[in-house]
Structures are given as structure tokens and as C-alpha cells.
Design a protein around this nucleic acid. Structure first.
Lengths: 342, 342
DNA sequence: TTTTATTATGCAATCGGTTGCATTGGTTTT
DNA sequence: AAAACCAATGCAACCGATTGCATAATAAAA
């Protein structure tokens, strides 16, 4: 195998010291411009590549950011990751990505791995059932910056990057009410998680503003999965008094529910109107097209990594920023429109 | 900040040498069992964590596998990555993931980054427009194992992990023919890529076996995106003689096409039958449910990383294995069924 | 008891950059 | 001409784990 070129090779060929070569390659101001040019040219010529391990070892930095998400293969998360990767790549940072698969146990294992990998910072969207903060303490103790995004850990004192979920829930529900629907069921996920509890708050507020009585039996907690959508449809079919609208906290679940409802001879929006959440591409390709709340997933990923890198570089203090809220918005399509029955 | 514990700390506290500590922690056979227990206990007690940078520097290994994919946020790719992450995580390897965004230029930049990050191995699914192998040469020269998956680089001598795309294309088309459809349009992606050219071969074979004349104008090359699906629908609408079936190389595109056709008063499968590819969840939640070819994305990701790690550990020789083919299968749903028009 | 194995541990060099603190040679100031 | 200063470079000690080779300690064989 071809021998690796080091700064020592460059140094000896140019009759310089390794120190000078190192400084030149890092564009240190104390080095003469001409010398820099010389060294860079020689480095290029020899096919030199810096050894990150030697460098990291000495600098005690890893240039690596850890990311823990519930799942990688959901539209939202894969898009968040795509945004993260883009920024990290541009800034010369590496990402170590792992998935908790919605289990706190796995999430704890992942944080341990991240800790041992000595990530410079950690970005987390917590699992459904996480209720302990314990496994994040080592990071705080070692002053390793920790940022939550999407599903945050409330009361943690860590910076958060979120959308205004309450506003999203409010707008979705308000829209349904404005369309004339009154008996609205809310399909959501584990209410431990801010994203779902906040949307529920928005739902409740919209109801209350319009003088509609909130009934807790109209809030159905599910896994928001494809299967959950099917079950919801069957449950609705069996209901003696059917709702006139659904507000579902995930497009994929909403869409699966709509499909199953159709199989059960309940049509959307004629019999039941539906609003989803996320603006997953799937929302545009079904019939009727799904009204939803746009979720700025890519921007969230970009923002998370940008904030982290800025903080690591000392550009701004994360402690000061507590929460960054990104813009989300209602997208009205066919699934929620009141049609006059001719 | 809390000071980091090193093997030297453990060594001095136990009156041993760092060498012994290092060996003990790595379970070296020459170390006495009792000593190992002692050292492990002390390591635990002090909260020792190994410094991967020192270790990698010395061992000249990175324990890191690079992954380059066209996009992260497609169902297939995010699922492949999920599978990769699972195995890599279990085996103590890190993944560096980057996306080429379907551009050869970006792919080249990514390979450079991977090369400079000194990944131990590289897994690649190539971009739409990649036609040069040049940027992979440095890896071969340095004998860094390179494995292609899904979209492979043909005639590269590198191991490949794929499904039998020709078989998939054949089965999809054959199924349509068996349903009585004869004028089948094939919607596909850039034919430079094996996945598309092979499926086309299967399509052609199925036609020829049934004595149906292959017409090149029945093969439409598109981006297979959501937008592409819409365009296809409009193009079909404008056709004087309409096809009776479509074989689309991506579910998302197929589904988007179906939705648009519906808007244009062409119903599926009554007017036109459709078969997709991938078994994307979206295929189950639309109406009619989409017939498709199941793509074992998670298994592919797992297999890719497993093969790579096995090779890196010297368990088996990659050069011997040239191609690993995973099982795919036709899933018949409603979108392709011939309905007798009552 | 001396010699030969066997087992367990230590020594010290090494991996390749980085960086605080000299040092050198030249220029400017007094 | 001596003193003060500055710009550019070098010296050498790190960072923390690994590993070939030597050595010590103990057991087994002669």
C-alpha cells in the first residue's frame, strides 16, 4: 500500500520544520505568505492528507456532532437529517447518527455510545417513552452542548429548536371549525412529548374559542403509524355517532386512515373531513389531497447544526438562546373542505 | 470541566504499567484474569472512556465507514441507512453519511471528503449522472474497500449489493400482461443506472416472451419524482391512443401520477392499470392500492455494512464475492387488476 | 540445583499534528 | 553603535493508546 505522506515528509523536502508546515497548512498568521504557498504546493504535489486523529488527539476536539432520532426512515426525520448533513458537510463537521427506535432503553445506549465517541455536541429528538433526563447528565457535567429539536425534553434548560406546535394545532382545528365542523376528533401520539401535547393545547384552544365543548374522549392517543390509521378508521366505523372531522398529528397516519375509511364506505371529506400534520409528500398524492400543516424539516436540521457549530466555535452563546421557533403554516387542500351536498 | 481519565491514571492507581492496562481493557490473552477484573473495575470506578483518537492514530484504523447516497430523504434510502446504522452501531463502527443530491460533481466532492476522513471502507449508491469512475480510484489505489449498493457502477470490479432488477421488471410487466394489458408504458429513470436499465431489460423480455412488440417510444425517462408523475399524467392525457397500463420504476412517482390521472378523469385501474416499484408505505395508503415490487431496503443496508465489516475484519475476502443479490418480490394489489366492465 | 518453559508484566518507541516558548536575523529607534 | 523591536521559524514537549521486545517471576523438567 502507498505510504501516507505526513507533515514531516513535507518539512524535510523543503528543509523546514514540521511546526512551520503545520502552521502554514492551518493558515497561521505568523507564517510568511511565500512559505505558505511553497508548503501548500508541496502538500498538493505529494498528495498529503491531514491525519484527523493526530490532530484531534492533540487539539482535544473531535469535530463530530452526535444526532439521536427516534427513527431515520420517516419523511420528517430523513429530511431533518438531510438538512443537517448539508450544513455539517459544508462546515467540515462529521455527524454520527443513531436511532432510538422510540425506546428509552435504546436511547440511553445511544447516548452512552455518543459520550464514548466524544462528540463535541449532541442533537436529540427524544423517543416516545423517554421520561428520564438521567442519561443526558454526563453531557451537561462535561459541558458538552446538548440541543433538543422537534421532540424536546421540557424543563431541561437546554436550547430547543421547534415549531410552534400549539399554533399548528390551533390553526388546523380552527380551519376545520371555520369549515363548519364541530365534532372533531384529534388523533395524536404520546402526550409526554411536547409536539403532541402542544398540538392538543392548540386544538383545545380553538374549540374553546368557538364555544365547542372539549371532550377528552375525542382525543385518541395512538402510535401515529400506518397501522394506527387503519385502526382509527375501524374504530370510527364502529362509532354510533360519528365525528364530522379528524385532526391527525401525522400525514402518513391520516392518509392510511382515509384509505381505510374509504374501504369502509366513509368518504373524505363528504362524510368526515381530515387535516394532517407535516406536509409529507404523501399528502399531495392521495385523493382527496390532504390539508396539513407544513413542517420545515430541512430548515430545522440546518438550524440545529448551525446553532451547534456556532456555539462550538464560540460565535454565540447557546445558554442565552433558549428556544428557536421555526415557521410552520397551514396548507389547505381538499380533504378538509365542506362540500354542499347537492 | 472534569478531567479526562486515561489508562495512565488507572495504571498509577493500581501500581501497574499503562501497557498492562491497555492490554487488559482489550482483553489480551497474556493478561491474568484477576488483573483484568481489577483493571476493569477501576476503569468503571473512575469513569474511564477510551480515547478513540489516540487508539486510531496508533492502530492506523478509523473504525469508520463512509456512505454516499443520492438522497437521504427518500423512503428507500432512509430505510437502507436505518439498516446500516443498526448493524454499524452493534459492531462498534461509525458511519459518515453524505448525499450527492444526484450530481456527479457533489459526489466527487463527497468522495474527497471521505478519502480525507480516512474511512476504512466506502459504500456508494451512485448519482443519476455519474459516468466517471475516476473519483473512486484513490480508494482502489490505497486498497480501501469499496462496495456499491442499489445503484452500482458496472464493470468496476467492485463488489455489488443489489436486487435482481431485471427480474423485478420482468415480473411487474409479466403480471400486467397476464392481466390482459398489452400497451404498457414504462416510466423509468436515467438509463445509465443499472437499476433502471435492468428493469427495462426485464420489461422487454416479458413483452417479447408474450409476442408483444417493444416500442422505444413506450419508455419514458423521467426524474421519477412527484413532479415527474404529474407530467406523465398530463402527457398521457394528451395522447391520442392511450396505454392500458403503466409500469413505473418508483412508487412515489406512480402514486403522484395516479392522483393526477384521477384529476384528469382517467381512473386506475379501469382506464389504465399501474404497477410501481419499491413497496413504499405510500403504496398501501392510496386508492386503489398500488401493485408494486417489494424492495428489501433495510436488509440491503444491513448486508452492505455486514459485508464491509466482515471484509475489514478479514473474515472473508471481498474480492471473491462479486455480487450479492437480495430477494425482491411482486406484491399484487388493486391498481393492476383487470376489472370486467359491467 | 541448574536448566528450560511458561506466564505475566514492564519498557520505550511510535502514530502525526499542535503549540508555548525560544531563537535567529533583520530593521528601526535612540 | 547600542538598544529595542519585529517577523519568521525552530525546538521539544505534549495528546493517549498500542505493541514488539525484553524481563521478571514462577513452575516444570533435567
Amino acid at each position: 500500500m502507498g505510504k501516507e505522506i505526513t507533515i514531516y515528509d513535507i518539512a524535510s523536502q523543503l528543509q523546514l520544520s514540521p511546526a512551520t508546515v503545520s502552521r502554514a497548512l492551518n493558515n497561521h498568521p505568523a507564517i510568511n505568505e511565500k512559505t505558505k504557498v511553497l508548503i501548500n504546493a508541496k502538500a498538493e504535489e505529494l498528495g498529503y492528507r491531514s491525519n484527523k486523529f493526530a490532530s484531534n488527539l492533540r487539539k482535544q476536539k473531535t469535530n463530530t456532532i452526535g444526532v439521536i432520532v427516534p427513527r431515520l426512515n420517516s419523511y420528517i426525520m430523513s429530511t431533518v437529517i438531510a438538512g443537517m448533513e448539508k450544513v455539517a458537510n459544508d462546515e467540515g463537521f462529521n455527524l454520527i447518527i443513531s436511532q432510538s427506535l422510540e425506546s428509552q432503553r435504546k436511547e440511553i445506549a445511544n447516548t452512552k455510545t455518543m459520550f464514548n465517541s466524544r462528540v463535541d455536541g449532541l442533537l436529540v429528538s427524544v423517543a416516545f417513552d423517554t421520561d428520564s433526563f438521567e442519561h443526558f447528565q454526563p453531557f451537561l457535567k462535561k459541558k458538552i452542548p446538548l440541543i433538543f429539536f422537534d421532540r424536546i425534553f421540557e424543563n431541561s434548560d437546554c436550547p430547543n429548536i421547534v415549531i410552534d406546535n400549539a399554533k399548528g394545532g390551533y390553526e388546523a382545528t380552527k380551519h376545520l371549525i371555520e369549515q363548519g365542523f364541530k365534532n372533531i376528533i384529534h388523533i395524536t401520539g404520546n402526550l409526554k412529548r411536547n409536539v403532541y401535547s402542544d398540538r392538543l393545547k392548540g386544538y383545545q384552544q380553538a374549540l374553546s374559542e368557538s364555544g365547542i365543548l372539549f371532550k377528552s374522549e375525542n382525543v385518541w392517543v395512538t402510535a401515529l403509524s400506518l397501522e394506527a390509521g387503519k385502526e382509527v378508521a375501524h374504530r370510527i366505523k364502529a362509532l354510533p355517532i360519528k365525528p364530522d372531522a379528524l385532526f391527525v398529528s401525522s400525514d402518513l397516519c391520516a392518509v392510511s386512515c382515509i384509505a381505510t375509511l374509504k374501504d369502509l364506505d366513509i368518504t373524505v371529506p363528504n362524510d368526515i373531513a381530515v387535516v394532517g400534520f407535516n406536509n409529507d409528500p404523501v399528502s399531495q398524492v392521495i385523493s382527496p389531497k390532504l390539508t396539513t400543516i407544513h413542517y420545515p424539516a430541512k430548515e430545522m436540521g440546518e438550524m440545529a447544526v448551525k446553532s451547534m457549530i456556532n456555539h462550538l466555535k464560540g460565535n454565540f452563546n447557546l445558554d442565552a438562546t433558549n428556544t428557536i421557533t421555526l415557521r410552520s403554516e397551514l396548507i389547505v387542500r381538499e380533504s378538509s373542505l365542506f362540500l354542499t351536498h347537492s
